[in-house]
Design a protein around this nucleic acid. Structure first.
Lengths: 199, 199
DNA sequence: GATCTTCTTGAGTGATCAGTCAATCCGCGG
DNA sequence: CCGCGGATTGACTGATCACTCAAGAAGATC
Protein backbone atom coordinates (compact mmCIF):
# COMPACT_ATOMS: atom_id res chain seq x y z
CA UNK A 1 0.00 0.00 0.00
CA UNK A 2 1.17 3.53 -0.73
CA UNK A 3 2.54 5.43 2.26
CA UNK A 4 -0.17 8.08 2.22
CA UNK A 5 -2.86 5.41 2.29
CA UNK A 6 -1.13 3.46 5.06
CA UNK A 7 -1.00 6.61 7.20
CA UNK A 8 -4.63 7.45 6.44
CA UNK A 9 -5.75 3.90 7.23
CA UNK A 10 -3.84 3.80 10.53
CA UNK A 11 -5.25 7.17 11.49
CA UNK A 12 -8.81 5.99 10.81
CA UNK A 13 -8.27 2.93 12.96
CA UNK A 14 -6.59 4.74 15.84
CA UNK A 15 -8.94 7.74 15.93
CA UNK A 16 -11.76 5.19 16.05
CA UNK A 17 -10.15 3.10 18.79
CA UNK A 18 -8.74 5.85 21.00
CA UNK A 19 -10.14 9.14 19.81
CA UNK A 20 -8.38 12.04 18.11
CA UNK A 21 -6.66 13.75 21.05
CA UNK A 22 -5.60 10.53 22.73
CA UNK A 23 -3.90 9.28 19.57
CA UNK A 24 -0.30 10.42 19.17
CA UNK A 25 1.37 10.98 15.83
CA UNK A 26 4.08 8.53 16.88
CA UNK A 27 1.46 5.77 17.36
CA UNK A 28 0.04 6.40 13.91
CA UNK A 29 3.55 6.24 12.43
CA UNK A 30 4.36 3.00 14.23
CA UNK A 31 1.21 1.29 12.92
CA UNK A 32 1.70 2.69 9.42
CA UNK A 33 5.42 1.83 9.48
CA UNK A 34 6.30 5.31 8.32
CA UNK A 35 8.39 8.28 9.46
CA UNK A 36 7.31 11.73 10.64
CA UNK A 37 8.72 13.34 7.50
CA UNK A 38 6.45 11.21 5.30
CA UNK A 39 3.36 12.04 7.31
CA UNK A 40 4.07 15.76 7.20
CA UNK A 41 4.87 15.50 3.52
CA UNK A 42 1.25 14.46 2.85
CA UNK A 43 -0.55 16.19 5.72
CA UNK A 44 0.27 19.67 6.94
CA UNK A 45 -0.91 19.14 10.54
CA UNK A 46 -2.62 16.56 12.73
CA UNK A 47 -5.85 18.45 12.15
CA UNK A 48 -5.38 18.13 8.38
CA UNK A 49 -5.12 14.40 8.97
CA UNK A 50 -8.49 14.16 10.67
CA UNK A 51 -10.01 16.23 7.86
CA UNK A 52 -8.69 13.67 5.37
CA UNK A 53 -10.09 10.88 7.54
CA UNK A 54 -13.52 12.52 7.53
CA UNK A 55 -13.37 12.95 3.75
CA UNK A 56 -12.48 9.29 3.43
CA UNK A 57 -15.48 8.22 5.54
CA UNK A 58 -17.68 10.38 3.33
CA UNK A 59 -16.34 8.71 0.20
CA UNK A 60 -16.78 5.21 1.59
CA UNK A 61 -20.35 5.73 2.81
CA UNK A 62 -22.19 4.57 -0.29
CA UNK A 63 -19.76 1.96 -1.67
CA UNK A 64 -19.17 0.28 1.70
CA UNK A 65 -22.28 0.91 3.79
CA UNK A 66 -25.44 2.14 2.12
CA UNK A 67 -24.92 0.54 -1.30
CA UNK A 68 -24.57 -3.07 -0.07
CA UNK A 69 -27.59 -2.69 2.21
CA UNK A 70 -29.65 -1.23 -0.63
CA UNK A 71 -28.73 -4.12 -2.90
CA UNK A 72 -29.27 -6.83 -0.32
CA UNK A 73 -32.72 -5.69 0.72
CA UNK A 74 -35.62 -4.65 -1.54
CA UNK A 75 -38.02 -3.34 1.10
CA UNK A 76 -36.94 0.24 1.89
CA UNK A 77 -38.16 0.08 5.49
CA UNK A 78 -36.33 -3.18 6.05
CA UNK A 79 -33.18 -1.54 4.68
CA UNK A 80 -33.20 0.76 7.70
CA UNK A 81 -33.23 -2.21 10.07
CA UNK A 82 -30.68 -4.01 7.91
CA UNK A 83 -28.44 -0.98 8.40
CA UNK A 84 -28.94 -1.05 12.18
CA UNK A 85 -28.24 -4.77 12.13
CA UNK A 86 -25.06 -4.24 10.14
CA UNK A 87 -23.87 -1.86 12.85
CA UNK A 88 -24.90 -4.34 15.51
CA UNK A 89 -22.75 -7.01 13.87
CA UNK A 90 -19.73 -4.70 13.87
CA UNK A 91 -20.28 -4.09 17.58
CA UNK A 92 -20.40 -7.83 18.27
CA UNK A 93 -17.19 -8.24 16.30
CA UNK A 94 -15.38 -5.63 18.38
CA UNK A 95 -16.84 -6.79 21.69
CA UNK A 96 -19.08 -3.76 22.25
CA UNK A 97 -16.22 -1.37 21.57
CA UNK A 98 -15.51 1.30 18.97
CA UNK A 99 -19.07 2.33 18.10
CA UNK A 100 -19.62 4.86 15.33
CA UNK A 101 -16.41 6.64 14.24
CA UNK A 102 -18.32 9.71 13.08
CA UNK A 103 -20.34 9.88 16.30
CA UNK A 104 -17.17 9.63 18.38
CA UNK A 105 -15.48 12.44 16.48
CA UNK A 106 -18.70 14.47 16.59
CA UNK A 107 -18.67 14.58 20.38
CA UNK A 108 -14.91 15.06 20.63
CA UNK A 109 -14.38 17.75 18.01
CA UNK A 110 -17.66 19.61 17.32
CA UNK A 111 -17.03 22.36 19.87
CA UNK A 112 -13.28 22.67 19.71
CA UNK A 113 -12.40 22.12 16.02
CA UNK A 114 -14.53 24.50 13.90
CA UNK A 115 -13.06 23.21 10.63
CA UNK A 116 -13.86 19.58 11.40
CA UNK A 117 -17.44 20.19 12.49
CA UNK A 118 -18.90 20.86 9.01
CA UNK A 119 -17.19 17.72 7.70
CA UNK A 120 -18.70 15.69 10.55
CA UNK A 121 -22.11 17.20 9.80
CA UNK A 122 -21.64 16.39 6.09
CA UNK A 123 -21.02 12.74 7.00
CA UNK A 124 -24.14 12.59 9.16
CA UNK A 125 -26.07 14.37 6.40
CA UNK A 126 -24.94 11.63 4.01
CA UNK A 127 -26.33 8.92 6.27
CA UNK A 128 -29.52 10.90 6.72
CA UNK A 129 -29.94 11.43 2.98
CA UNK A 130 -29.63 7.69 2.38
CA UNK A 131 -32.24 6.89 5.00
CA UNK A 132 -34.43 9.72 3.76
CA UNK A 133 -34.31 8.24 0.26
CA UNK A 134 -35.55 4.91 1.54
CA UNK A 135 -38.32 6.59 3.55
CA UNK A 136 -39.41 8.45 0.43
CA UNK A 137 -39.52 5.16 -1.46
CA UNK A 138 -41.89 3.87 1.21
CA UNK A 139 -43.88 7.11 1.35
CA UNK A 140 -47.16 5.52 0.25
CA UNK A 141 -46.97 2.97 3.06
CA UNK A 142 -46.50 5.68 5.70
CA UNK A 143 -49.15 8.07 7.04
CA UNK A 144 -49.72 11.04 4.76
CA UNK A 145 -48.75 13.57 7.43
CA UNK A 146 -45.59 11.65 8.35
CA UNK A 147 -42.57 13.98 8.57
CA UNK A 148 -39.99 11.86 6.76
CA UNK A 149 -37.23 14.41 7.27
CA UNK A 150 -37.74 14.26 11.04
CA UNK A 151 -37.93 10.48 10.82
CA UNK A 152 -34.56 10.30 9.04
CA UNK A 153 -33.00 12.34 11.85
CA UNK A 154 -34.71 10.00 14.26
CA UNK A 155 -33.24 6.82 12.78
CA UNK A 156 -29.75 8.25 13.10
CA UNK A 157 -30.57 9.41 16.62
CA UNK A 158 -31.56 5.87 17.57
CA UNK A 159 -28.38 4.47 16.06
CA UNK A 160 -26.05 6.93 17.79
CA UNK A 161 -27.88 6.96 21.11
CA UNK A 162 -28.14 3.18 21.15
CA UNK A 163 -24.46 2.72 20.37
CA UNK A 164 -23.45 5.23 23.05
CA UNK A 165 -25.37 3.36 25.72
CA UNK A 166 -24.18 -0.03 24.47
CA UNK A 167 -20.57 1.03 24.81
CA UNK A 168 -21.12 2.44 28.30
CA UNK A 169 -22.90 -0.76 29.35
CA UNK A 170 -20.43 -3.01 27.53
CA UNK A 171 -23.58 -4.84 26.41
CA UNK A 172 -25.78 -4.63 23.32
CA UNK A 173 -29.02 -4.70 25.34
CA UNK A 174 -29.50 -0.90 25.25
CA UNK A 175 -29.00 -0.89 21.49
CA UNK A 176 -31.35 -3.84 20.96
CA UNK A 177 -33.99 -2.31 23.21
CA UNK A 178 -33.80 0.97 21.28
CA UNK A 179 -34.05 -0.74 17.90
CA UNK A 180 -37.03 -2.78 19.16
CA UNK A 181 -38.89 0.39 20.11
CA UNK A 182 -38.02 1.94 16.74
CA UNK A 183 -39.43 -1.19 15.08
CA UNK A 184 -42.58 -0.83 17.14
CA UNK A 185 -42.87 2.78 16.03
CA UNK A 186 -42.56 1.84 12.35
CA UNK A 187 -45.12 -0.93 12.81
CA UNK A 188 -47.55 1.60 14.22
CA UNK A 189 -46.84 4.04 11.38
CA UNK A 190 -47.42 1.32 8.78
CA UNK A 191 -50.58 0.13 10.52
CA UNK A 192 -51.92 3.67 10.77
CA UNK A 193 -51.36 4.26 7.05
CA UNK A 194 -53.06 0.96 6.19
CA UNK A 195 -55.99 1.83 8.45
CA UNK A 196 -56.82 4.99 6.52
CA UNK A 197 -56.48 3.24 3.19
CA UNK A 198 -52.97 3.28 1.70
CA UNK A 199 -51.87 6.82 0.93
CA UNK B 1 -15.00 27.56 48.20
CA UNK B 2 -12.75 24.83 49.56
CA UNK B 3 -9.80 23.94 47.35
CA UNK B 4 -10.95 20.39 46.69
CA UNK B 5 -14.34 21.63 45.56
CA UNK B 6 -12.83 24.34 43.37
CA UNK B 7 -10.66 21.74 41.63
CA UNK B 8 -13.60 19.34 41.23
CA UNK B 9 -15.81 22.11 39.84
CA UNK B 10 -13.17 23.27 37.36
CA UNK B 11 -12.60 19.69 36.25
CA UNK B 12 -16.31 19.16 35.64
CA UNK B 13 -16.48 22.30 33.55
CA UNK B 14 -13.35 21.63 31.52
CA UNK B 15 -14.00 17.93 30.89
CA UNK B 16 -17.43 19.02 29.67
CA UNK B 17 -16.09 21.80 27.47
CA UNK B 18 -12.98 20.11 26.05
CA UNK B 19 -13.11 16.44 26.95
CA UNK B 20 -10.95 14.47 29.35
CA UNK B 21 -7.82 13.90 27.28
CA UNK B 22 -7.76 17.39 25.79
CA UNK B 23 -7.90 18.99 29.23
CA UNK B 24 -4.51 19.51 30.86
CA UNK B 25 -3.95 19.49 34.60
CA UNK B 26 -2.39 22.94 34.32
CA UNK B 27 -5.61 24.31 32.80
CA UNK B 28 -7.66 22.88 35.65
CA UNK B 29 -5.27 24.42 38.16
CA UNK B 30 -5.40 27.82 36.49
CA UNK B 31 -9.21 27.90 36.56
CA UNK B 32 -9.35 26.59 40.13
CA UNK B 33 -6.56 28.97 41.23
CA UNK B 34 -4.70 26.13 42.88
CA UNK B 35 -1.30 24.46 42.72
CA UNK B 36 -0.34 21.00 41.51
CA UNK B 37 0.52 19.87 45.03
CA UNK B 38 -3.03 20.66 46.21
CA UNK B 39 -4.61 18.74 43.36
CA UNK B 40 -2.45 15.70 43.98
CA UNK B 41 -3.10 15.96 47.70
CA UNK B 42 -6.81 15.31 47.04
CA UNK B 43 -6.62 13.20 43.87
CA UNK B 44 -4.03 10.52 43.26
CA UNK B 45 -4.06 10.77 39.47
CA UNK B 46 -5.92 12.51 36.64
CA UNK B 47 -7.99 9.36 36.28
CA UNK B 48 -8.98 9.57 39.96
CA UNK B 49 -10.16 13.08 39.22
CA UNK B 50 -12.55 11.96 36.49
CA UNK B 51 -13.84 9.23 38.80
CA UNK B 52 -14.65 11.89 41.38
CA UNK B 53 -16.33 13.97 38.67
CA UNK B 54 -18.51 11.00 37.69
CA UNK B 55 -19.42 10.39 41.34
CA UNK B 56 -20.37 14.04 41.64
CA UNK B 57 -22.67 13.86 38.60
CA UNK B 58 -24.30 10.80 40.13
CA UNK B 59 -24.91 12.64 43.40
CA UNK B 60 -26.35 15.71 41.67
CA UNK B 61 -28.73 13.78 39.39
CA UNK B 62 -31.79 13.76 41.64
CA UNK B 63 -31.31 17.05 43.54
CA UNK B 64 -30.46 19.08 40.42
CA UNK B 65 -32.11 17.32 37.48
CA UNK B 66 -34.79 14.72 38.12
CA UNK B 67 -36.15 16.12 41.39
CA UNK B 68 -37.03 19.61 40.07
CA UNK B 69 -38.66 18.12 36.97
CA UNK B 70 -40.68 15.69 39.08
CA UNK B 71 -41.92 18.52 41.31
CA UNK B 72 -42.69 20.92 38.49
CA UNK B 73 -44.76 18.46 36.48
CA UNK B 74 -47.48 16.12 37.71
CA UNK B 75 -48.06 14.08 34.55
CA UNK B 76 -45.35 11.38 34.45
CA UNK B 77 -45.27 11.29 30.63
CA UNK B 78 -44.96 15.06 30.46
CA UNK B 79 -42.05 14.85 32.90
CA UNK B 80 -40.08 13.03 30.22
CA UNK B 81 -40.62 15.85 27.76
CA UNK B 82 -39.97 18.40 30.48
CA UNK B 83 -36.60 16.70 30.98
CA UNK B 84 -35.83 16.83 27.26
CA UNK B 85 -36.86 20.47 27.24
CA UNK B 86 -34.62 21.21 30.18
CA UNK B 87 -31.70 19.83 28.20
CA UNK B 88 -32.78 21.81 25.17
CA UNK B 89 -32.66 25.00 27.22
CA UNK B 90 -29.13 24.23 28.39
CA UNK B 91 -28.10 23.73 24.76
CA UNK B 92 -29.62 27.08 23.77
CA UNK B 93 -27.75 28.69 26.64
CA UNK B 94 -24.42 27.30 25.48
CA UNK B 95 -25.07 27.96 21.78
CA UNK B 96 -25.44 24.31 20.76
CA UNK B 97 -22.21 23.37 22.51
CA UNK B 98 -21.31 21.08 25.40
CA UNK B 99 -24.15 18.54 25.14
CA UNK B 100 -24.40 15.80 27.77
CA UNK B 101 -21.29 15.55 29.97
CA UNK B 102 -21.94 11.87 30.69
CA UNK B 103 -22.51 11.07 27.03
CA UNK B 104 -19.29 12.84 26.07
CA UNK B 105 -17.26 10.91 28.62
CA UNK B 106 -19.05 7.70 27.62
CA UNK B 107 -17.75 7.90 24.07
CA UNK B 108 -14.31 9.12 25.10
CA UNK B 109 -13.54 6.73 27.94
CA UNK B 110 -15.70 3.59 27.66
CA UNK B 111 -13.16 1.59 25.69
CA UNK B 112 -9.93 2.91 27.09
CA UNK B 113 -10.63 3.50 30.79
CA UNK B 114 -12.06 0.29 32.28
CA UNK B 115 -12.46 1.83 35.74
CA UNK B 116 -14.46 4.80 34.49
CA UNK B 117 -16.85 2.79 32.31
CA UNK B 118 -18.91 1.30 35.20
CA UNK B 119 -19.27 4.74 36.75
CA UNK B 120 -20.50 6.13 33.42
CA UNK B 121 -22.95 3.25 33.13
CA UNK B 122 -24.10 3.89 36.72
CA UNK B 123 -24.87 7.49 35.78
CA UNK B 124 -26.86 6.45 32.71
CA UNK B 125 -28.61 3.80 34.81
CA UNK B 126 -29.63 6.56 37.24
CA UNK B 127 -31.23 8.57 34.44
CA UNK B 128 -32.91 5.44 33.13
CA UNK B 129 -34.24 4.50 36.56
CA UNK B 130 -35.81 7.93 36.95
CA UNK B 131 -37.50 7.71 33.56
CA UNK B 132 -38.52 4.12 34.24
CA UNK B 133 -40.19 5.24 37.46
CA UNK B 134 -42.26 7.80 35.57
CA UNK B 135 -43.21 5.24 32.92
CA UNK B 136 -44.33 2.84 35.64
CA UNK B 137 -46.47 5.60 37.13
CA UNK B 138 -48.16 5.93 33.74
CA UNK B 139 -48.38 2.17 33.21
CA UNK B 140 -52.16 2.10 33.04
CA UNK B 141 -52.19 4.69 30.25
CA UNK B 142 -49.76 2.66 28.13
CA UNK B 143 -50.50 -0.53 26.20
CA UNK B 144 -50.46 -3.62 28.38
CA UNK B 145 -47.67 -5.26 26.39
CA UNK B 146 -45.53 -2.10 26.41
CA UNK B 147 -41.91 -2.87 27.38
CA UNK B 148 -41.30 0.03 29.75
CA UNK B 149 -37.68 -1.01 30.37
CA UNK B 150 -36.95 -0.82 26.64
CA UNK B 151 -38.82 2.47 26.50
CA UNK B 152 -36.66 3.95 29.26
CA UNK B 153 -33.54 3.02 27.28
CA UNK B 154 -35.21 4.56 24.27
CA UNK B 155 -35.83 7.95 25.90
CA UNK B 156 -32.17 8.20 26.85
CA UNK B 157 -31.22 7.08 23.34
CA UNK B 158 -33.27 9.89 21.84
CA UNK B 159 -31.70 12.41 24.20
CA UNK B 160 -28.11 11.36 23.53
CA UNK B 161 -28.55 10.78 19.81
CA UNK B 162 -30.40 14.06 19.38
CA UNK B 163 -27.76 16.02 21.28
CA UNK B 164 -24.95 14.43 19.28
CA UNK B 165 -26.51 15.47 15.99
CA UNK B 166 -27.39 18.93 17.31
CA UNK B 167 -23.77 19.57 18.24
CA UNK B 168 -22.50 18.34 14.89
CA UNK B 169 -25.04 20.51 13.07
CA UNK B 170 -24.54 23.48 15.43
CA UNK B 171 -28.33 23.65 15.30
CA UNK B 172 -31.09 22.27 17.50
CA UNK B 173 -33.19 21.08 14.54
CA UNK B 174 -31.97 17.44 14.77
CA UNK B 175 -32.77 17.37 18.48
CA UNK B 176 -36.19 18.96 17.99
CA UNK B 177 -37.02 16.61 15.12
CA UNK B 178 -36.08 13.59 17.25
CA UNK B 179 -38.12 14.77 20.22
CA UNK B 180 -41.09 15.40 17.90
CA UNK B 181 -40.98 11.82 16.66
CA UNK B 182 -40.67 10.55 20.23
CA UNK B 183 -43.74 12.63 21.10
CA UNK B 184 -45.57 11.08 18.15
CA UNK B 185 -44.61 7.64 19.38
CA UNK B 186 -45.95 8.35 22.87
CA UNK B 187 -49.16 9.74 21.40
CA UNK B 188 -49.63 6.52 19.45
CA UNK B 189 -48.91 4.43 22.56
CA UNK B 190 -51.43 6.42 24.62
CA UNK B 191 -54.03 6.25 21.85
CA UNK B 192 -53.53 2.50 21.45
CA UNK B 193 -54.02 1.93 25.18
CA UNK B 194 -57.15 4.07 25.19
CA UNK B 195 -58.50 2.21 22.20
CA UNK B 196 -58.48 -1.15 23.96
CA UNK B 197 -60.05 0.26 27.10
CA UNK B 198 -57.61 1.63 29.66
CA UNK B 199 -55.41 -1.10 31.09
C1' DG C 1 2.74 27.39 73.31
C1' DA C 2 4.33 22.79 71.76
C1' DT C 3 3.02 19.18 68.67
C1' DC C 4 0.83 16.85 65.23
C1' DT C 5 -1.98 16.56 61.06
C1' DT C 6 -3.81 18.53 57.10
C1' DC C 7 -3.20 21.39 53.45
C1' DT C 8 -0.50 24.56 50.31
C1' DT C 9 3.41 26.12 47.77
C1' DG C 10 5.86 26.05 43.25
C1' DA C 11 10.10 24.75 41.21
C1' DG C 12 11.41 20.72 39.07
C1' DT C 13 11.12 15.66 36.95
C1' DG C 14 11.39 12.69 32.77
C1' DA C 15 8.37 11.49 29.15
C1' DT C 16 5.80 12.52 25.37
C1' DC C 17 3.64 15.89 22.40
C1' DA C 18 3.18 17.86 17.48
C1' DG C 19 6.06 19.34 14.17
C1' DT C 20 10.89 20.51 11.49
C1' DC C 21 14.56 19.93 8.36
C1' DA C 22 18.70 18.88 5.91
C1' DA C 23 20.21 14.91 3.76
C1' DT C 24 19.22 11.12 0.90
C1' DC C 25 16.73 8.11 -2.11
C1' DC C 26 14.41 6.93 -6.32
C1' DG C 27 11.89 6.90 -10.73
C1' DC C 28 11.68 9.25 -14.97
C1' DG C 29 12.23 12.40 -19.00
C1' DG C 30 15.75 14.05 -21.85
C1' DC D 1 24.11 9.23 -17.89
C1' DC D 2 22.36 13.53 -16.02
C1' DG D 3 19.25 16.32 -13.66
C1' DC D 4 15.06 17.05 -11.44
C1' DG D 5 11.17 16.68 -8.22
C1' DG D 6 8.41 13.91 -5.39
C1' DA D 7 9.03 10.79 -1.56
C1' DT D 8 11.59 9.14 2.49
C1' DT D 9 14.66 9.14 6.34
C1' DG D 10 15.27 9.95 11.36
C1' DA D 11 17.59 12.84 14.51
C1' DC D 12 16.09 16.90 16.55
C1' DT D 13 13.25 21.01 18.59
C1' DG D 14 10.71 23.53 22.10
C1' DA D 15 6.46 23.03 24.38
C1' DT D 16 3.52 20.67 27.16
C1' DC D 17 2.21 16.48 29.50
C1' DA D 18 1.09 14.23 34.17
C1' DC D 19 3.19 14.10 38.29
C1' DT D 20 6.72 14.70 42.53
C1' DC D 21 8.55 16.48 46.62
C1' DA D 22 10.76 19.07 50.14
C1' DA D 23 9.54 22.89 52.57
C1' DG D 24 6.51 25.46 55.13
C1' DA D 25 1.81 27.47 56.49
C1' DA D 26 -2.51 26.87 58.97
C1' DG D 27 -5.48 24.77 62.29
C1' DA D 28 -6.77 21.75 65.80
C1' DT D 29 -5.66 19.33 70.35
C1' DC D 30 -3.56 18.92 74.50
Amino acid sequence: MATREKILESSMQLFHEQGYTATGISTILRRAEANPGSLYHFFKTKEDLVHAVLDQYQELLWPVVLGPVQEAEQDPIERIFRLLDWYRDSMVESGCRLGCPIGNLALELSDTHPQARPKIEANLAGWRAGIRGWLDEAADRLPQDCDREALSYFVLTVMEGGLLQARAADDLAPFDASVAVLRDHFNRLLAAAKGTGHD
